[in-house]
Design a protein around this nucleic acid. Sequence first.
RNA 1: CGCGGAGUAGAGCAGUGGUAGCUCGUCAGGCUCAUAACCUGAAGGUCGGUGGUUCGAUCCCGCCCUCCGCAA
Length: 310
Amino acid sequence: MNKCDLRIVYLGTPEFAVASLRALVEGGYNVVAVVTMPDKPAGRGHQLQFSDVKKYALEVGLPVLQPEKLKDEAFIEELRSYKADLQIVVAFRMLPEIVWAMPRLGTFNLHASLLPQYRGAAPINWAVMNGDQETGATTFMLKHEIDTGNMILQERLPIGPDENVGSVHDRLMAMGTGLVTRTVDLIIDCENKGIEIPTTPQPEIAELRPAPKIFKEDCEIRFDQKTATEVHNFVRGLSPYPAAWANLTINGQLFENVKIFAVAPTANDQQPSTKNGLIIPCREGAVRILELQVPGKKRMDAKAFLNGLH
RNA sequence: CGCGGAGUAGAGCAGUGGUAGCUCGUCAGGCUCAUAACCUGAAGGUCGGUGGUUCGAUCCCGCCCUCCGCAA
């Protein structure tokens, strides 16, 4: 079997999933259809928005399936009609067994963490928020419990001490493309040799850190409850999306819902200060805010913000 | 027709029915390490676009363009 003989159905939604899809398409793999989220009204003015994966699929002329419900009879029938040998899911949603068990060779997932760590929806954010110095990406075969299947390939990636999640996301996305294509190559190779795909059960680890979906209320910075280092990690783990925020009182003026994109730990300070930049005291130490955004305003560095105070 | 904010000097913001200021930056000079330092001086704006009201509009009214927050 050649890579152009293997029929692949690809499931994914955001930008992170586009990279691997593109790698497959441009690498000459036989992607026969794409499954993605239904179009939704979004953005200012509630315009109908296509998912990033759908935009790309349309660009290259791939069939797009957008089921409201993954168990829907019509959708299952349509999916079957593509006669996939393999399904690949990247940043999609939970799949019912009837979907992931459908292809002859099964379904594998690209997950943006070193499994078994950071199972869940926001693995990249949590790794940075926890101050980890390393993360990675893993491909694994789907099974019932989410993000627990046997691992196929895994690759590690260092996290810089001041790096934010946006940067880690982009680097993991690039790394993921290689992981996905190599996983497919491996599967084809095993198929040709008539052997099982070698997989490894996820190791048992005592200290398992989860990576649940992050909501806005989880993003408020509690300066009084965190050390300067913790605030720093929290901010970069949420920057640029979904962004940490806080209500700040500066020179007696209250600013609500201020998004904070970058801070640097700095010398201790008891009071919020604007003398040497925008300094906010923490439970231990203090941070200097480097980049922020007030509602209705543009994102700006702290210096610009201070220039506008009056 | 989802709700809302905003377009004034390179940046961030004030302001007024009689053609505009602040902080920062820039440039020139001084001081000399204050780790986003200090002093002096200068340059730099058809106040988003377009109609209207007015003796006169950056400011009031209509339309257009652009940017942003919320919500999804």
